[in-house]
Write a protein that binds this DNA or RNA. Structure first.
Length: 431
RNA sequence: GGGGAGAUUCCAGAGCGGCCAAAUGGGGCAGACUGUAAAUCUGCUGUUAAUUCUUCGCAGGUUCGAAUCCUGCUCUCCCCA
């Protein structure tokens, strides 16, 4: 077997692993699973690392299992959470599970028929008919409360002032641990991977596998570091929201922009983590970037690779075009050259507003235009503030208070392009 | 079952009868500088044309005047058993 661990190591994807994991992966094609929480009906870039891990596994000849936590999602993982979690209802959960399956299918071919074809499972399937009594007898008996309490996720919550933890959440690790046992039994799954916050849950699993099998079966754990940003802020959020792997939720343009805006420091580690480029390619990219950081070669390569991975060539082309128009040295005349079709394509995902033709014919004050007629800004106070800040542009031209908006602002294709600050674009068209 | 603490504007957290649309910090937004980076600096951050109106868990009350006092209600938390 090719050495997967070594590959993951230089990419910075290994946080911790159990002794013997590397040997196991070298010895034979190993069935490995990673779990996904159905807390939403799609996945955001926070789940990209596990997805990429599954892809690496497949590429290195191992068999990846993606587990969607229909059952565990009903309980709520306390890891990394300082508060008791709210329970999701069943309908929401089913909806979410379906959504996540759909997204995962884009990255892994679950219809593949090869020996190490990826598999998609839902732990609800084997947990739903498991009675509490049975669970308590078969699983609960194997693990002591002492063992469970020693986990960081539990200790943290018990030790905290004003915290507390419900029995439900306390049980979580056992349920997840049982998944591992189940997959071990039915798929010969020997390894679980996950984020470093999952270490405790995973080791409960390896422990269960060992204790629930007479002949002392062995199971392994490998975790990857949680993605961080150099400035300490949370990875994966862009202006106001998550960055989703779904074009409906985050347009390819925004997605591309998210990666393009990566800081220099982060870009060097992200390119290793998130792309499949070889070590040599990456090293030369990094060298080139250090040479001329302002060219942003790394960020561009990163954004390009990921837009291709998550979306497709077409989406990338549009994103590139849009970026060029919005951030290149465009002005009114270049905007005017755009056809309506290009405009619509480029601005897909940019908020779009409509305004009555007659209003523009008469002309309207900028404040009313922004607030009352289009809703670009939520209140007059906000609009006034923005105007005072000199942060608003119409068709790439800064505007101030008292400016009138009228027909002459319409571009040839019938749009008005409004900007708040450098990066926030809005389109207004007439109806 | 007993005892105690608390619910404040996006979050954390001051305020404890007028000077409170409410300190401070965080976050967010914008501006300058730049490379659509980082760091830094600056401004803004309920709403209104307005000394307008609506905000301090909910409902009442005291008062010229309440986030601040009283009564009831709801919810949260802690400790003891």
């Amino acid at each position: 077997m090719k050495n997967l661990v070594e590959e993951l190591r230089w990419r910075g994807l290994i946080h911790d692993m159990m002794p013997g994991t590397e040997e196991q992966l070298l010895k034979e094609s190993t069935v490995t699973y990673i779990g996904f929480d159905p807390t939403s009906d799609s996945l955001h870039i926070g789940s990209l690392v596990p997805i990429i891990l599954l892809m690496h596994l497949k590429n290195f000849g191992h068999k990846p299992i993606a587990l969607v936590g229909g059952a565990t999602g009903m309980i709520g993982d306390p890891s990394g959470k300082s508060d008791e979690r709210n329970l999701l209802d069943e309908a929401t959960l089913n909806h979410n599970v379906a959504g996540i399956k759909k997204v995962l299918s884009r990255f892994l071919d679950f219809n593949d028929t090869s020996e190490n074809a990826p598999v998609l499972v839902n732990n609800y399937d084997w947990m739903k008919n498991f009675s509490f009594i049975d669970f308590a007898r078969e699983v609960g008996k194997r693990i002591t409360v002492n063992y469970m309490m020693a986990k960081d996720s539990v200790k943290k919550r018990l030790g905290e002032e004003g915290g507390g933890m419900s029995f439900t959440e306390f049980t979580y690790q056992l349920i997840q641990g049982y998944d591992f046992y189940h997959l071990h039994k039915h798929y010969n799954c020997k390894l679980q991977m996950g984020g470093s916050d999952q270490w405790g849950n995973i080791t409960t699993g390896t422990e269960l596998v060992r204790r629930m099998n007479d002949e002392g079966a062995k199971a392994y754990a490998l975790t990857c570091p949680l993605i961080t940003k150099a400035d300490g802020s949370k990875f994966g959020k862009s202006e106001g929201g998550n960055v989703w792997l779904d074009a409906d939720k985050t347009s390819p343009y925004k997605f591309y922009q998210f990666w393009l805006n990566t800081s220099d420091v982060d870009a060097e580690s992200y390119i290793k983590i998130f792309t499949f480029k070889t070590k040599e390619e990456i090293e030369s990219l990094i060298a080139a970037h250090r040479e001329a950081p302002h060219e942003r070669k790394l960020q561009k390569a990163l954004a390009e690779a990921l837009t291709l991975l998550v979306h497709n060539q077409e989406a990338l082309t549009t994103a590139l075009e849009a970026s060029e128009i919005l951030f290149g040295k465009s002005d009114i005349s270049s905007l005017n050259k755009l056809s309506m079709a290009t405009m619509e394509e480029v601005f897909e995902g940019v908020p779009c507003f409509e305004i009555e033709k007659s209003i523009l014919e008469k002309g309207v004050d900028i404040t009313n235009f922004l607030v009352e007629h289009t809703g670009i800004l939520p209140s007059n106070a906000e609009a006034k503030r923005a105007l005072k800040e000199n942060s608003l542009s119409i068709n790439k031209e800064k505007v101030g208070e008292g400016r009138e908006v009228n027909n002459s602002d319409l571009l040839q294709n019938g749009y008005i392009l409004v900007q708040r600050g450098k990066k926030n674009y809005f389109l207004v068209k007439t109806n």
